[in-house]
Design a protein around this nucleic acid. Structure first.
Lengths: 188, 188
DNA sequence: CGGATCGTTGATCAACTTCAACGGTCGTGG
DNA sequence: CCACGACCGTTGAAGTTGATCAACGATCCG
C-alpha cells in the first residue's frame, strides 16, 4: 500500500486524509505463483496495481496457444480497460508470474472518489496518458522491427524483464515462438 | 470548435464560461490535402482534434518506406504523446489526408486550465482511458490475426475508413504491402 | 528421486515481401 | 477545360521470414 501512495505522490499532491480515503476502497491480494486475478469470460471491476511481484495478461487463440499481450512489474497498473469500460466479458487471463502482492481498485468506487478528490483523477489522467504514450511507442516498434530486432531491442532496453520471466513468456510477449527465440539466441 | 464542445459535453458537464476559457487557448487550422501539422524531428506542443476531415500519422523506416501507425477522422484526438510528454523530437509525420479543419490545443496551456477546471481534466482522463483501451484492443488484434484476417475485420468494422483513405494507406496501417492487399481483395 | 516443464535442434511448410512491369485515373498547370 | 505527368492499383515470379511439428536433454521442484 505504501508503494502506491509513494507512486501517486510522485505525480500529484494529496493529503493524508485523501490517501486514507483511497486506501479504504483498495483490497490487498496476496497471490502465489500462477494464481489468477481474472479469467477469460469474467466481467471485470478492478484495476490492479503491482505492489510487489509480476503479472502477465494473455489470451487463448483459436488454435489453443497462449498469447501474452502485457507483462507488469512493480508500480504498473494492469487491467483490460475495454472490458472495464464496456462491462463486457474480457477475453484475457491475468495471472501472477511469481509470488505477488497486488492492490485491487474497484473502478466504480474510484469514479466516486474522483468527484471528491480531483487530484486523484489527475493522477489517473497522467497514468492513462503515459500508458497510451507507451502503447503508441510499442505499436511503432511492432511495425518497425523484425521479430529478431524486437528481441534485441527489448533485451537491451528492459534487461530486468528478461531475467525475471521465462523465455517462452518473453517469446510470446514479443509475438513469436519459443523455438524461434532459441534460434535468435544461438545466432548471437 | 462547436464539434469539440459537443464532444466534451458528451462526457462531462462544463459551463459556457469554462468552454470559453478552453476556446481561448485553441488554435483553428484549416489544412489542404497533404499539408503537414508535424514532421519527424519536430518538438511537439499540440494535441490535435479533428473537427472536420482526416489525418494520418506515419514514420519513415530505414529502407525509406512509410509506415502509418494511426488514422484519425472527426472527433478523434491525435498526437505523439510520448514526444509531448518527454519534449523529445518526434519520429512521426502528421499529415492531412483530405482538406481538414483541425483544432490545436497547446498542452502546456491545457495543464494550467486543468487546475481551474477539474471537469476538463476529467474529460481528458476519460479520453486517454478510452484511447488506451482501444490501443490494448488493437495490440490484441495485431497478435491474434493474420494480415488477411486483419483486413477483413477492419473492412467490416470500419467501412467508413475503407471508403475514405486510399488502399495503400490502409495496407500500410494494417502492416502489409499494397501488393498483398490487392491479392487479398482478388481472392474474395 | 521422478514427473512435468523448459529450452533446443532440425526439417518442412505457409504467409507475406520484394521487384519489375503495366494500365487506369486523378488533379494540376497551361 | 483539356492534356499530360504523377500516382495508384494490379499481376506474377522469386525470395525471406518465421511457424509448425516432432523429438531430445536439461532442470526445477515437490
Amino acid at each position: 500500500m505504501k508503494n502506491l501512495i509513494t507512486h501517486i505522490k510522485k505525480y500529484v499532491t494529496i493529503t493524508d486524509d485523501e490517501a486514507n480515503k483511497l486506501t479504504e476502497i483498495i483490497e490487498v491480494k496476496n497471490l502465489k505463483r500462477k494464481a489468477y486475478l481474472t479469467r477469460a469470460g469474467d466481467i471485470c471491476k478492478y484495476n490492479y496495481f503491482v505492489s510487489q511481484g509480476c503479472l502477465r495478461m494473455y489470451f487463448i487463440r483459436e488454435n489453443g496457444t497462449e498469447q501474452i499481450t502485457q507483462i507488469a512489474i512493480e508500480n504498473w497498473w494492469l487491467a483490460d480497460y475495454m472490458a472495464l469500460l464496456k462491462q463486457q466479458e474480457t477475453p484475457f487471463f491475468i495471472q501472477a508470474v511469481e509470488k505477488s502482492t497486488i492492490l485491487a481498485l474497484d473502478v466504480n468506487a474510484a469514479e466516486n472518489l474522483f468527484k471528491q478528490i480531483p487530484q486523484l483523477e489527475r493522477y489517473y489522467r497522467i497514468m492513462f496518458q503515459f500508458s497510451y504514450a507507451a502503447s503508441q511507442f510499442r505499436i511503432k516498434y511492432l511495425y518497425d522491427y523484425s521479430r529478431e530486432e524486437l528481441y534485441h531491442h527489448f533485451a537491451t532496453q528492459f534487461p530486468e524483464f528478461v531475467q525475471r520471466v521465462p523465455q517462452y513468456m518473453l517469446a510470446s510477449y514479443l509475438g513469436f515462438t519459443p523455438e524461434y527465440l532459441s534460434e535468435i539466441r544461438k545466432k548471437k
